[in-house]
């Protein structure tokens, strides 16, 4: 699915999901539960924003529909609230880096790791799952140490070792020593539109694209599972054809 198609699908879903009931967002991070962490930072910031989106399943992985992660309660914020927090931390939505990671590691046959990459860049290299999972868990621990509810603003220059930048977001981080960077940039002038990241999962050794994470300049945040596009496209085409047929028949009657 192309970026344009993904954004179109998200934009279409946004209207359909307008009245979606809020879910229950996670309060506090629990290691090894596949909880997905959204990290947002900028090159000049001394603070990283980390939001626990809930488990992969709660965030829509493996689901059948696009999920509005604000309306669904995953972020714990409205789109305007998320945009406001990002703006207050980083001065705006432009020139940011964001990514999503998470996973679990029980044993060599029961583990998973999730990571975003820039849209269309292909599957990431994901090395030792336990090592990557440790990086994600340590950021999650930082969320618990520095945050309230499901989010935290964690200083990345104090040597605490629990910030997004120290564990995941920088080239010297534990994550990036053992896997592809999960970071995706927003445009230098990001005042409209969307920035798209592909989310991959490496589950028990097999890596697959799970879907896309779409961050809007207005603070909107969606997850679209990979299984959605083709059926939806067919469905939309079918619905369109049916509508045309009905209209023509109606017109005939008139």
């Amino acid at each position: 699915m192309t970026t344009i198609t993904k954004i179109a699908a998200v934009a279409a879903a946004a209207g359909a999901l307008a009245n979606q009931a809020s879910g229950q967002f996670v309060s506090g991070f629990t290691a090894n539960q596949d909880q997905l962490l959204l990290g947002i930072t900028s090159p000049s910031s001394t603070t990283d924003l980390v939001i626990d989106l809930g488990t992969a399943t709660q965030a829509g992985v493996g689901g059948g529909t696009t999920l509005d992660l604000n309306l669904n309660g995953n972020t714990g914020l409205t789109a305007a609230g998320l945009q406001s927090e990002i703006t207050s931390l980083f001065g705006g939505m432009s020139g940011l880096e964001f990514g999503v990671v998470g996973g679990h590691n029980v044993n060599v046959n029961n583990n998973a790791i999730y990571s975003t990459v820039p849209d269309g860049s292909g599957a990431p290299v994901l090395g030792a799952v336990g090592t990557l999972n440790s990086a994600a868990n340590t950021v999650g621990q930082g969320l618990n140490d520095f945050g309230t509810g499901n989010q935290a603003q964690i200083p990345n220059n104090q040597g605490y070792g629990e910030s997004w930048g120290e564990e995941v977001g920088s080239p010297t981080s534990l994550w990036q020593k053992n896997g592809t960077s999960p970071m995706v940039g927003t445009p230098a002038s990001f005042t409209s539109g969307y920035a798209v990241a592909d989310l991959y999962g490496k589950v028990n050794g097999t890596t697959v694209e799970e879907g896309t994470v779409t961050l809007g300049s207005d603070g909107s945040l969606f997850f679209t599972p990979s299984v959605v596009p083709e059926p939806d496209a067919f469905t939309l085409a079918g619905l369109g054809a049916a509508a045309l047929l009905i209209r023509r028949r109606g017109a005939t009657r008139l």
Binding site: N137, T138, Q141, E162
Partner: peptide
């Protein structure tokens, strides 16, 4: 080479 906060297994 880890921080003292590193989550381990």
């Amino acid at each position: 080479g880890f921080p003292t906060t590193q989550v381990i297994n």
